[in-house]
Write a protein that binds this DNA or RNA. Sequence first.
DNA 1: CCATCGATGACACATTGAGTCAAATACGTC
DNA 2: GACGTATTTGACTCAATGTGTCATCGATGG
Lengths: 205, 205
Amino acid sequence: MNAAPTADIAERKRQLVRGELAEAAVTLLADQGFEETTVDQIAAAVGLSRRTFSRYFQSKEDVVVHMMSGPSARMCAELRARPADEPPAVALRHALSVITSLSVTNPDKTLHVSRLILDTPAVLARFLERLSRWQAEMAGILAHRTGLDPDADMRPALAAGVALTAFQTGLRRWVDRDGTEALDELVNQAFAMITPALDLGTAPS
Amino acid sequence: MNAAPTADIAERKRQLVRGELAEAAVTLLADQGFEETTVDQIAAAVGLSRRTFSRYFQSKEDVVVHMMSGPSARMCAELRARPADEPPAVALRHALSVITSLSVTNPDKTLHVSRLILDTPAVLARFLERLSRWQAEMAGILAHRTGLDPDADMRPALAAGVALTAFQTGLRRWVDRDGTEALDELVNQAFAMITPALDLGTAPS
DNA sequence: CCATCGATGACACATTGAGTCAAATACGTC
DNA sequence: GACGTATTTGACTCAATGTGTCATCGATGG
């Protein structure tokens, strides 16, 4: 009868195992390199079988990319929560700061994971594919905020894409600088340069 | 002694086989779906073995993505060739039109391949990773054009990224419209909206 | 105590990507 | 036209991956 609590516990346990797997994976991958690490090693590091690993992650790439899924959901939630009269550029900047703040609360891990993503082609590919989903979701939110029709107007998608370009560029720079410059500041600079493109007017083309 | 001509011929033959493989691959992939098609089928369709396929492409994904490599090289060459005093936005637009013009010279194939790329997550991932390489190369060219230091200034990378965002967004829209609206025109519209962000000034931050 | 359900592991299977080596094919030279 | 050489190809092999299936184990609830 305790359907809800039971499901909660079960789900929490799943997330626990998932977290353990991810933790061990990042350690091993950053240590031995991505291609040189097998799924069996990751699974064994947590005392699980490869089959069980597959039940939590589709692939090695997804382990790394998945660590951004929680933050990305919070980022979209933040974008949704921004005041409706806020300019898109400001709302987008605030939303993305949800992610960039990870570099403050957990600098070492964030840097390691970011480096792993940006320097491993296979992981980068998956990550960018994930980013394109963020973009789609952000575009929908922006369209809703502005009352534009996302199927008729490219501006919401463009604004989301441009904002994510700023994020990517700042992140790349941050990693190239070994985290010595604040990620927030780098993304701020990037945003300042592309803000003109984020001003979705309401006048039709 | 005819070292150069021989190498030329050999290379041309390689490109021929590569083209055959790519052609058969796109046909099969678009026909049966990506996941449902095996490399063996593609190789067999050209009368070659799977091992030989691996010598031409690293993976199924790369077959599709590779079809953009020629155009992308020409696009970068065009960007390099644009007059130095041309505004970045104009130069980028002209460069990208090298690619968008494919939708005019070969509409059906371009549409099929584009749909395959955008609708297949695994292919999209590889494609986006490839785009990020284009971005890096374009950023280098832009930095050279403007005399900016690409390691110190994010603007070249941002401009390239923003231009590619416009391209992606226009391409997505073009595919969603089943090619009924001109890709060139869609990318033009996208460019018009983000052009403000492409004006790399020379004043340091 | 037992029934049930979810998680796990063992096994099997298809697919992929790559290393190795022999055969074949094309090329230039004689 | 014949020969030697270099490249290309195919057969075989292997490690790794992702997935389907099924039995087992443990926890939960009756």
